[in-house]
Write a protein that binds this DNA or RNA. Structure first.
Length: 422
RNA sequence: GGAGUAAUACCCAAGUGGUGAAGGGGACUCCCUGCUAAGGAGUUAGUGGUGUAUGCCAGCGAGAGUUCAAAUCUCUCUUACUCCGCCA
């Protein structure tokens, strides 16, 4: 959520910056009007309440003294409706302001490339060389079906499209990658979480999935529970509503979870293989940081995600998302894209974002520098470290051999218990 | 799922209609003191809103209601605990 004071005082600049997201945010012009109205109503209401409180005290005093109170009682009674009416108006204005602000995305950082979509994303660095095959490489879905380690048909029978059964060595590969990623992050000072895979609406509002993107998540019937689209939701909401001590920041967390996505609107995209599934597994990194730390922490977190790919020796590049492609809650996002031979291009495998105080405002997550000091909003960051399913696909395709076997990356051998997948 | 009990600050806790929300513990500050302990004095009701401001308004799990006035009475909800049922 944007700071209403900032919106009020910098309205034109705010609209201009938001419009670079490829939308029209001129509706924000309503905010200063509503805000002025709200403050005026509060002023009026408080004055009447103050009067009422003073007279009410007198009533108590008169009663004790045995005096007649009927006339001043009428006086207070008269203010009652007036107060109720003003409170109702304030409530309505507050609700309208909140409705507008909650559906408004974060301000894109000025450093982002300007552009309406992902074609304007800018490569910032590249690591490794795409492998040159001296045979015709297979896709990961063909490798999986050939070896019998992916079963797409039975997944359709049991669940539906965009689900997959992993079997045997591939199931173990997924688990090995999860262990490898968590071990790497925890060795680097990230605290491991195993979060709930379902969260309530307040949590979804806090990180920005609600109210705007309800159709992209799975909602349970008859319960205020949503299947998490990413562990970012439960982990970032962990301290929601609390006031942290500045000396405990930054906090660094990592978490394994399954992630559930409706994938509405992506019909026809990535229909083969395990690239786009309704359920996938991911290791997520989340950071809570002081405002002055968050940009450095974004760089650090991105490098931490890159380290996983480097240790796996998978070629990738890093891109800065353009203003038209950056996510709702994010001010700046680096995507890591891994080389996938079957796509003959780089494919997103991690997304590292600095949300500044945008999520913290929504979830009222704050900190204090000193006991008597002001409360300030924490900066929140999140990044995949990494999407495990897509890492499986990348390992399979990049490490395949001509005979259809797959060489196990060195760092995974202790988890896999073998050097080669046959 | 059923029944009962509860929710006040960092912790324990008093407060059943009258307006500065007791008290204790802990923590912190100061005093006393060779040192420590003990003792003495004090601070610790968050937080948010609003205003130039001493301030004012809201706030006793959340929401609604009754009343001139609600921590206190009524209703709904949430959460925790106990018992029963079920269960990996």
């Amino acid at each position: 959520m944007l700071d209403i004071k900032y919106v009020r005082e910098n309205l034109d600049e705010v609209i201009k910056r938001l419009n670079t997201r490829n939308g029209d945010y001129s509706y924000l012009k309503e905010i200063p009007v509503l805000d002025a109205k709200r403050r005026e109503l509060i002023k009026q209401g408080d004055a009447i309440k103050q009067k009422r409180n003073e007279v009410s005290k007198l009533i108590g005093q008169y009663k004790r003294e045995g005096k007649d109170t009927s006339s001043i009682m009428n006086e207070v009674a008269a203010s009652r409706e007036e107060i109720a009416e003003l409170d109702n108006q304030i409530e309505a204005v507050d609700a309208r302001i909140k409705e507008i602000l909650m559906k408004t995305p974060n301000l894109p950082d000025p450093s982002l490339p300007l552009g309406s979509d992902d074609t304007f994303n800018k490569e910032v660095r590249r690591w490794g060389e795409p492998r040159k095959f001296d045979f015709q490489p297979l896709t990961h879905w063909d490798l999986g079906e050939k070896l019998g380690y992916f079963d797409f048909d039975r997944a359709v029978k049991v669940s539906g499209p965009r689900f997959t059964f992993y079997r045997g060595a591939f199931a173990r590969l997924e688990r090995s990658l999860m262990m490898f990623m968590l071990d790497t992050h925890t060795a680097n000072g990230y605290t491991e979480f195993l979060p709930p895979f379902m969260v309530n609406s307040d949590s979804m509002l806090g990180t920005g999935q609600l109210p705007k993107f309800a159709e992209q998540a799975y909602k349970l019937q008859n319960e205020d529970l949503w299947m998490i689209p990413t562990a970012e939701v439960p982990v970032t909401n962990y301290y929601r509503g609390e006031i942290l001590d500045a000396k405990d920041l930054p906090m660094r967390f990592c978490a394994y979870s399954a992630c559930f996505r409706e994938e509405a609107g992506s019909a026809g995209r990535d229909t083969r293989g395990i690239i786009r599934q309704h359920q996938f597994q991911k290791v997520e990194m989340v950071k809570l940081a002081l405002p002055e730390q968050s940009w450095d922490e974004l760089e650090e977190m991105t490098h931490e995600a890159e380290r996983i790919l480097q240790l796996l020796k998978l070629p990738y590049h890093v891109v800065t998302l353009s203003t038209g492609d950056v996510g709702f809650s994010s001010a700046k996002t680096y995507d890591l894209e891994v080389w996938l031979p079957s796509y003959n291009t780089y494919k997103e495998i991690s997304s590292c974002s600095n949300c500044l105080d945008f999520q913290a405002r929504r979830m009222n997550l704050r900190f204090k520098r000193t006991k008597d000091g002001p409360t300030e909003f924490v900066h929140t960051l999140n990044g995949s470290g990494l999407a495990i399913g897509r890492t499986v696909a990348a390992v399979l395709e990049n490490y395949q051999n001509e005979d259809g076997t797959i060489t196990v990356p060195e760092v995974l051998r202790k988890y896999m218990g073998c050097d080669i997948i046959k």
